[in-house]
Design a protein around this nucleic acid. Structure first.
Lengths: 108, 108
DNA sequence: ATTATTCATCGTAATATTGCGATATAGTTA
DNA sequence: TAACTATATCGCAATATTACGATGAATAAT
């Protein structure tokens, strides 16, 4: 999406942005919501559940995996995906940073 | 970014995704971090702080405002922006949903 | 061995994002 | 009024994203 100056931002900033970027698509949100609903790991039923082709789902899964938001384990011909909570603290910390008491709403 | 099937997702899913999408760029993360650092509302100093042109910063601010992540109040020739915490509960709730105890990590 | 199933990847087309310079708009000041 | 300052917007070029069908690779079943 056009040129993005990644050189001049903090590693932390880039990391947070990339996680949010991976979360910035309804298909990927829906995939995560679906994975969370299941008691056990679900594989390719995601394709049946969502209104996208198998190829598209696969690409979204790759992106979620690259962002560290899901894990995948191969079991036979099917692949089992589930949520990876590793980066959740990063997200929570970021949101909390924006909520510091110093930031008293000056714009009413 | 190509066709995105917005019709078939929940309003909730679309809302969450659009917030994350707005957070999915380092410039916008940096803007929010900068606003959080200040004790008072900061206006166009963002332009001086970040390695982007005034036009680009303005576009990012519009996006953050459209997503409901910042508020802006005009004071003279300058505009005062600050963080809008309205949607933070939505984000927190979403992350918590993904952390339900039913989702015991099955992929080791 | 052949076939079916599951998932990943490639290639392509359509669309969105990003960034910048230039310009417009609006308030402030001289 | 005219110049100055601060933001917003337009138009363009470059690049990224999304989606799909088709194809490939690997395991499972017959």
């Amino acid at each position: 999406m056009g040129i993005t100056k990644t050189d001049t931002y903090t590693d932390q900033t880039l990391a947070v942005a990339s996680i949010f970027k991976a979360l910035g698509h309804p298909a990927r949100i829906a995939i995560l919501e679906f994975l969370a609903k299941q008691t056990s790991c679900i594989c390719g039923e995601i394709v049946a559940e969502l209104p996208l082709s198998q190829a598209s789902i696969s690409r979204h899964l790759v992106e979620l995996k690259a962002a560290g938001l899901i894990k995948g384990t191969i079991s036979g011909t099917s692949v089992c995906y589930c949520i990876n909570e590793t980066h959740f603290p990063l997200i929570n910390t970021f949101i909390q940073q924006l909520q510091t008491p110093t930031n008293q709403s000056c714009c009413s």
